[in-house]
Amino acid sequence: MLAVDKENFEAEVLQHQGIVVVDFWSQKCEPCKAIMPEVEELATKYESKAKFCKLDTGGNRRLAISQKVLGLPTIVFYKDGEKVAEFSKEFSMEEVENKLQELI
């Protein structure tokens, strides 16, 4: 998974043609760390079909808020740079995978 931040978010996510999945997380967020391995698994499974990124909101707070993300964990789907779906707080990896399959 590609780590994105305020420097490269525009180029890697918003300018990307196709599906990008961004996992918003932070060092302090235990639930985020709990789901990270499953997100990594999805990233490997769908490697050729979607781009997976992770964004540490520590130090990238304004960027997260600009994406209307004010809570963790949150996973946002972008298609050709447009936000098309998102999951926040209580969600299962199954829901995330189903949404991904729907989009690709």
Binding site: S26, K28, C29, E30, P31, C32, T57, G58, R61, A64, I65, K68, V69, L70, G71, L72, P73, T74, E86, S88, K89, E90
Partner: peptide, 18 residues
């Protein structure tokens, strides 16, 4: 607004609100 400002976990989300 869960994840958009509504939260039940200060540790998780406090730093958004600096």
């Amino acid at each position: 607004f869960i994840g958009k400002g509504v939260s039940y976990c200060a540790t998780c989300d406090a730093d958004f609100f600096e």
